[in-house]
C-alpha cells in the first residue's frame, strides 16, 4: 500500500500538483512520522520523483539554464543552512511552524491564477 501511495504522490510531483508537500503531509499526519524525519524523507522522495522529469526537461531544452544555475546554487547554499536550523528546533515546534507555512502557501496557491 505504501508503495502504491508513494507512486501516486510521485505522480503528483511529475504533474506539478502539490509537489513534495503532499507526501510530507501524508508522512506526518497519516503515517505518524516524526516531523524532522518526514522532512528528510520528503527531500529524498522529491529528488527521486523529479529525476525522470528533470531528464526530460533537459532533453527537450525547456528550462532557462542561466536562471536555474543562479537559483540552484544560491538555493543549495541556503538550503544547507535551513536544514541545520531545522535540526536545532524542537520537533513539535517545527511541526507547528510548518503547519503555519502550509496554510499560507495553500491559500496563496488557491488564490493564484
Amino acid at each position: 500500500m505504501d508503495f502504491l501511495l508513494t507512486v501516486l504522490f510521485g505522480g503528483f510531483v511529475g504533474l506539478g500538483v502539490g509537489s513534495g508537500g503532499l507526501y510530507l503531509i501524508y508522512l506526518t499526519l497519516i503515517n505518524g512520522t516524526a516531523q524532522l524525519t518526514a522532512q528528510g524523507m520528503n527531500l529524498y522522495f522529491f529528488l527521486a520523483a523529479s529525476a525522470g522529469g528533470a531528464i526530460m526537461h533537459l532533453w527537450h531544452r525547456r528550462a532557462d539554464l542561466g536562471a536555474v544555475a543562479v537559483l540552484g546554487v544560491a538555493g543549495a547554499v541556503s538550503a544547507a543552512g535551513g536544514a541545520l536550523l531545522a535540526g536545532c528546533i524542537d520537533g513539535e515546534l517545527l511541526r507547528h511552524i510548518f503547519g503555519v507555512f502550509m496554510v499560507i502557501s495553500g491559500i496563496f496557491a488557491l488564490l493564484r491564477k
Binding site: L43, F46, L47, S50, A54, R62, D64, G72, G75, A80
Partner: peptide, 13 residues
C-alpha cells in the same frame, strides 16, 4: 526551470 532549480536545493538539504 522550477523543477531543475529546486533539485540542487533539495540535494543540499
Amino acid at each position: 526551470s522550477t523543477v531543475l532549480s529546486v533539485i540542487p536545493m533539495s540535494l543540499g538539504s
